[in-house]
Design a protein around this nucleic acid. Sequence first.
RNA 1: GCUGCUGUAGCUCAGAGGUAGAGCACUCCCUUGGUAAGGGAGAGGUCGAGAGUUCAAUUCUCUCCAGCAGCACCA
Length: 647
Amino acid sequence: MAQISLTFPDGNARDYDAGVTPAEVAASISKSLAKKAISATVNDAHWDLQWPITENASIALHTLQDEEQALELIRHDFAHIMARAVQEIWPDTKVTIGPVTDHGWFYDFDRAEPFTPEDLGVIEKKMKDIINARDAVRTEIWERDVARKFYEDAGEPYKVDLVDRIPEGAPLRMYWHGEWQDLCRGPHLQHTGQLPGDAFKLMGVSGAHWFGDTSKNLQRITGIGFRNRKELQAHLNFLEEAAKRDHRRLGKDMDLFHLQPEAPGQVFWHPNGWTIYTMLQDYMRRAQKRGGYVEVNTPQVVDRKLWEASGHWDKYQENMFIVEVDEEHAREKAINALKPMNCPCHVEIFKQGLKSYRDLPLRMAEFGSCARYEPSGALHGIMRVRGFTQDDAHIFSTEEQIGEECAEFIRFLSAVYKDLGFEEFRVLFSDRPEKRAGSDEVWDKAESALLEATRAAGVEPEMNPGEGAFYGPKLEFSLTDAIGRVWQCGTFQVDFVLPERLDAHYIGPDGEKHRPVMLHRACLGSFERFIGILVEEHSGKLPFWLAPRQVVVASITSEADDYVRDVVAELTAAGVRAEADIRNEKINYKVREHSVGKVPVILAVGHREVEERTVTVRRLGEKQTKVEALSDVVTALGQDATPPDLR
RNA sequence: GCUGCUGUAGCUCAGAGGUAGAGCACUCCCUUGGUAAGGGAGAGGUCGAGAGUUCAAUUCUCUCCAGCAGCACCA
């Protein structure tokens, strides 16, 4: 038999018969390794211990010590034994797929009866039984038609579909965990006993669709799994902490906003929340002014004719609030729509009066309030709403100006995000979709201009092929919420289509009419979503200048009340949002209440402070207090209260 | 929009076929207390909405609305 040479991580090489499996390699090294091994990395591929190696290769054997490989295997095997448990308990259940996720796995099932929360406990128990049985895992490669027939006979239609979806030439691997069988790319553990039976938890059941087919509902059971109980507990603690950072929770705690059934998906901003909003808007307005934007404002209710011309009526109608005015109220019946986007209105402004190439680039900004009839299931706190305000702008430019405008916008966005506490954000580059407008030449130009400009700005975007808008490629700038959900905030899109549809033009140096390019861009995205992200990012402890309530001056005895009023007056004069707390409560009580309310600075004053004209400063999250002269504190806090761009 | 779950006081939640309870918050009184809840008293609810079953429904059934998780959607 032919020999192959396997090179170990330490650089040593050993010869084996071709076709040797990593399990045999492990056994050749030591008995204990053979027992502990879970998988191998063979030439950078994660390799099942049972898969033969036929050529010279590098090899590394893994145990549970190797976190990355261990977690992938554990979670994958958990998914399989969960599916096995479900089918053993409810044999009529059809299996589909069960991939690994960030902290665990899910498996989608087709079963007429819904799974109940109680069922989860039953499934968990069955899973533990399977783990205790230490059933061997084995794998074989099957021919496509054999596998297909097998699943047809077994009455597993989704597996038949999967077999058909596996690309030509790819091995079709069958796995068995004990008697239970699944089609799976692997790799897997040696036996179910290698799973940590005390380090997993089923988290819930929800709906899912089979490859996006909304006509068929599957049931998804999700679980989390780790190498040991301690890691599981740590993650459960993280989830608990994350729940406390949820903007919906903090929105209540900090009295920022509320939502109610009469206006689903629309925000009732309370004074505290609106303070954040206006501070942010003022900040953006200054930033845009510096960035050479002009600010405009356009109508909320616009006749359908404009939406027909822009293409929204055709492509976006189901997301629009349609307003019909009947003859009782108007001379003639009119159909309008609340604007879901600002772009058509901006083009209408651009079209007023002749524009010259000398006017370009024309950066037209609007804090544009939009209404979109979002699907009910998509609504989420203030992150995904039906009424929101974008920090929107459209840059009318020439094709040659795209690159510089893009680079400039990335600089703009980076500076803004940095001021707001986001040093890192994801950037996705979405290129031409299958259904698109415009010639390939135009797309080539737009894509390369956008990509080059992005790279020139020092940003290497993740590729998001085929996800561009139909009119042009786009950049998405995304931020992550408390529990790891990614939200698109900023965007930059190149559009050749809308200027055409709405017939916008400018006069070029040649005296002829030319089509401008329209660059759609938003930095925060919407104030609603961004404030949600901002609150979660900071766990409610917003930067001082954005904190809705900046300082509470609390009296320790009522004899200090007059001084408290003085302190508040001085702070207010210095531009600090300060309030007095002269309630008949102990200082402990006041400190606790305002700490819970995330007030960044509490100034406590009693007899001593009155006499010395000082305050005792307590900053949120710090136990230590510090006595300081009132004048110093007023100066310092006045400084802190100044937005970063005005310091 | 789809599947499942949930909806009781301002908030967090308990509860039962005979029209309701706790803690915190709120109001008042006592207390003037030095850095995360001092004590006492009081007030507060069409039990998400509508319909049905029943002698009786907040509780059971149905429909609707909203929220939550996920899917789908996300110019």
